[in-house]
Write a protein that binds this DNA or RNA. Sequence first.
DNA 1: CGAATGATTGACCCCCTTCAAAAGCGGTGG
DNA 2: CCACCGCTTTTGAAGGGGGTCAATCATTCG
Lengths: 229, 229
Amino acid sequence: MLAINTSETSPYMQSFRQESRGGRALDDRLQQASERRLEAKEHVFCEGDQRTHVYRVEDGVIAIYKTLFDGRRRIIDFAYPGDYIGLGVLGEHIMSAQATCASKVRCFSASALESLAETDASLALKLYKSVCQDLVAARSLLVTVGQRSAIERVAAFLLALHRRGGEGSKGVVKLAMRRSDIADLLGLTIETVSRTLTKLREMQVIDVEQGGTTVKLRDVPRLADLANE
Amino acid sequence: MLAINTSETSPYMQSFRQESRGGRALDDRLQQASERRLEAKEHVFCEGDQRTHVYRVEDGVIAIYKTLFDGRRRIIDFAYPGDYIGLGVLGEHIMSAQATCASKVRCFSASALESLAETDASLALKLYKSVCQDLVAARSLLVTVGQRSAIERVAAFLLALHRRGGEGSKGVVKLAMRRSDIADLLGLTIETVSRTLTKLREMQVIDVEQGGTTVKLRDVPRLADLANE
DNA sequence: CGAATGATTGACCCCCTTCAAAAGCGGTGG
DNA sequence: CCACCGCTTTTGAAGGGGGTCAATCATTCG
């Protein structure tokens, strides 16, 4: 066993919590927290790259995906501001991370984070809990994608976005990604996503505005019903 | 994803694979490791149950699944001997665990494990790394299920089973679960699974024996090709 | 404006689902 | 031993949902 830390509420844990709301404690301990700006479609990292850094999304949306040998792309998750990407145990990234729109990330040294975690139980536990949440998200997507119809998938996706948007969003969801990104997340084609959105509009459950980039949820309960949730 | 916040939802962690190679260290520190036998279709725990224990599969196969509102069942993973199920952070189980065949599990106190991890960085780090592996597995399934044809899914499933079986299996894969379990894992119907197995047999890629419970892989490279891997 | 990129809509078709029936398999009991 | 029953798997036929291909529209930008 490595170091035994007996303090029940470690200051590290606290700092991590604050970090998610914009505090600087983690930055302080992990130097080299440089910022990086990305244009739409620019990559944060690619499959096979050495895993040198962990990134926190500051602004924009980052798509985490895997490329199939035949060129198809499977988006696993979208990372939003506050989310961390690039965490893992192996030497190389097994997924790619690409900005769906102009974005900003903060870079932390992966090795520094890991050596810290080796002796800091609450930091390690924090990492554990974070990845658990990722796992929940992945499994939730698995449920959505596995055996649901197009309308269920799109409805579930819109609801998930809406929930992420928080209370202030008032039923307005901004789609900061292209139809192709949504399609690759949901395991559908661009055309089906488009058709499904049209169908939802005709059903008066949503409104699509501003060139299809903004969706207004007109009937959330109905949408939840359609999503089978 | 990876929000570093403190929401104490009950992320669910399925297997703790390091430990499976590591021998008895965990047993030593977590007493009360009683054994429990399960018949086929018996539950280890259900969605909503209080998360009192963590289980290590000793024998058999346990299906981890979630039930949709309309009764459909989505299997997230199969846990094999050596895998841990029921790990998470707090609260209640958000998935159900059900034996697909006669099985045996060993029970550990969840609270004991967690209080240990709070002060033991290496244990917490192990939890972190383990859940990372689960995450990889979940994402891999997501790739399989998301946008692949029936034959690709079944081929990938057989290959995954074969890899798990280890070197000694000599191309023989034992299906310790029903067609319905495979179907619910792959997001297909029982009929499609059956038809696909028949097709693979007609293509002379596999042989199906013993009432459909044993599959012999006759042409692994071809199977890998079909799986698009 | 014209080119480029993305979104929408239409037509057709294929794969998988659905519904239905038959066939294996395993156990139990006469 | 075999008949019978329940469960599972296999196979068949028909229909539909989403993929594919293609044309049109919309938006942005040089």
